[in-house]
């Protein structure tokens, strides 16, 4: 038997879907406004079997992965330097703060002007969003390291390199993962917006295509897919966070 809260959650989802189906079929009878779940599933099947879905999905995932990977490398390096050297922190701070406080999506048109309509502009959007989060969190992690650990490394006569590799970076790891988690959600939003504004592939493009052709079942397929993507990436990162830093209480959502 499942746990009580899981059972209730499952029940709630099933009841919600049923209610949606009944309401859409009996009361509204308007596919345009609210398509019933069954026609959403049918539309999903149609899109999947023609290979369209695959193409758009792959484009979004690829853009996301490239941007994310680059942001991890650059973000950890810059964050490390900011945590280690006070002057560097002070020089970077105003710019990072500016980048952080500007709503991401307002700079998307600018990024498209600069980097074109292709894949590169979307990778840059993901990169920008994730890098800022990782930089801030890595710097915080490096700064708040327990001084006792550094003393231990001194008494063991570890070289600078070893101190970095064996003490500082592992100590900052939970912070870094937190930065990644924060980055994922925002980056997903960013990549979808960039695709929506200007592109010819990706889930954002599919979203615009569906809404401009008034194809509501297709629109809902995209919404459900995006929801699934959000949930899966969030769960993965959360699992990672718990594994790397089991002593830290992670966010429930």
């Amino acid at each position: 038997m499942l746990r009580k809260d899981l059972r209730r959650g499952f029940l709630s989802i099933v009841a919600g879907l049923l209610l949606w189906e009944i309401l859409a079929r009996l009361l509204l009878e308007n596919e345009l406004l609210i398509p019933p779940p069954s026609s959403v599933v049918r539309s999903f099947w149609k899109l999947a079997s023609t290979g369209q879905l695959n193409r758009h999905f792959a484009a979004t995932v690829l853009e996301f992965t490239y941007g994310f990977a680059a942001a991890c490398v650059v973000g950890i390096a810059l964050g490390y330097l900011m945590g280690m050297y006070k002057w560097f922190d002070e020089w970077m701070d105003p710019w990072i703060a500016t980048l952080y406080s500007i709503p991401i999506i307002t700079v998307v048109p600018l990024i498209i002007i600069w980097f074109g309509l292709g894949m590169l502009s979307k990778v840059i959007v993901v990169f920008k969003i994730t890098a800022v989060e990782i930089i801030l969190n890595t710097a915080a992690g490096i700064k708040t390291i327990d001084p006792v650990w550094l003393e231990v490394s001194k008494s063991l006569r570890l070289s600078r390199w070893e101190t970095t590799y064996k003490i500082r970076l592992p100590a900052a790891l939970p912070y870094i993962v937190t930065g990644m988690r924060l980055g994922v959600g925002r980056a997903l939003l960013g990549v979808i917006i960039a695709e929506l504004l200007a592109s010819n592939a990706g889930l954002g493009y599919l979203l615009r295509d569906a809404s401009e052709t008034w194809d509501s079942p297709k629109l809902f397929v995209t919404v459900v897919l995006l929801a699934a993507m959000g949930i899966v990436s969030f769960t993965l990162i959360k699992k990672g966070e718990q594994k790397l830093a089991p002593w830290r209480e992670t966010a429930e959502w």
């Binding site: 009580k4 209730r8 959650g9 029940l11 709630s12 989802i13 995006l226 929801a227 969030f234 959502w253």
Partner: peptide
């Protein structure tokens, strides 16, 4: 909490632009 939770997780983790 148990009844609302799954819907909230879904809505919260979906990129808002989708809606």
């Amino acid at each position: 909490r148990d009844y609302v939770h799954p819907w909230m997780t879904t809505l919260y983790t979906t990129p808002r632009i989708a809606f």
